[in-house]
Design a protein around this nucleic acid. Structure first.
Lengths: 193, 193
DNA sequence: CCACAGTGGTTGAGAACTCAATCCTAGCAC
DNA sequence: GTGCTAGGATTGAGTTCTCAACCACTGTGG
């Protein structure tokens, strides 16, 4: 019953007697699960909104763009293949493409064609981009702390990590060995020689 | 170090020596916290994307709209004031207004002017809207189970609930006694007489 | 009864995202 | 080589969302 499990008024009416075919074996959420789900949903929605607002207000960029800059800054050469960047930012290629286009216009990222595989493109963080990230970081981290990390006990932080990893595993993502190495490293070496 | 805490290459360069004013007392995320944060971020992003995809594909509505229909279905008279509806769906008034406009065009929701306070508007779930929700619910719940609930142990479900509530508390939300009663109940009574 | 601050809600413009279609390029198979 | 499938990335149209401005109504204080 309730919200997610569907209309409290269970559809006992919508005659399901006729077709025995797809007999509903649906396991609706139990009260405890429903409570957890709704809490999770509300919390993540509001938290993400808050992060977005803060970054947009103080640094003129949405959270998704911050993540792109951050990931780029964290890699040797501050350069990454578009696909790999999309993967570690949990973004579709299309979305990343649009995003990088915007970041490029803003002068925070530069596109560099990949010489080895001419299908690929590298995205490279510019100095201006790095500066923008460095300026945005303190406020952002403060917000993450204020609304999430500092609200939790150390145990809860660990629990959150485990829950996150469990969900990721279920979605077939590892996150540990995200496709960083390969092309990036090679490109770096090549650049030096 | 890393992603969120900002450029791995710590800005030891961006001369902060000069102005002693805002001496950075920033507490960057510690390795464990960072790991938890990145896991959480990736998991929620991908999970929400998956929920959206499933609902859009199978029922032609985004997750946010499902929530609106679900909340409406769960209340007496399947009717709620716009503001209250916005509150319990963690939506801004503007967003809800746009959403309801779309849902109304689709015939799933009807707007009813409030007689007592002519500033207010009621949103009412139509029969078609209820049917659409009922049709969408099984697939949605299955997805929630498959990717979240069923991935976790019963303890983790409880932990998730507690974490969610802790975050909500920090954001100044209760969720327990969300503004449902008042206007809705009154309207119901009035409707019967 | 009249200003007027506050509430409830809508609107429009612009930003971001989704999906599907498209375009090159690589890497085979023959 | 020639075809063919798959991979990497971009584009455009359509949808949703955000922000700020706005309108309409309420209820109080003078």
């Amino acid at each position: 019953m309730s919200a997610v499990s569907v209309p409290s008024t269970q559809p006992a009416d919508s005659g399901d007697q006729g077709s025995v075919s797809s007999v509903e074996e649906i396991r609706w959420l139990e009260p405890g699960e429903l409570d957890a789900w709704l809490s999770y949903l509300a919390a993540t929605t509001l938290l993400e909104a808050e992060l977005d607002r803060q970054l947009q207000r103080d640094s003129g960029m949405p959270h998704a763009y911050y993540q792109i800059l951050a990931m780029l800054s964290d890699v040797p050469g501050r350069t990454m293949r578009m696909s790999d960047l999309a993967a570690i930012t949990q973004s579709s290629q299309s979305r990343l493409s649009h995003a990088v286009a915007r970041l490029e216009r803003q002068g925070w990222v530069r596109r560099v064609p990949c010489p080895d595989d001419r299908r690929s493109t590298f995205a490279q963080l510019t100095e201006a981009g790095f500066a923008a990230l460095a300026a945005a970081a303190p406020g952002h981290v403060r917000t993450v702390r204020r609304h999430l990390i500092d609200r939790l006990t150390p145990e809860q932080v660990e629990q959150l990590r485990d829950i996150g990893k469990a969900v990721l595993a279920g979605l077939g993502v590892d996150l540990g060995r995200t496709p960083l190495p390969a092309a990036v490293v090679e490109a770096e070496e090549r650049r030096r020689s």
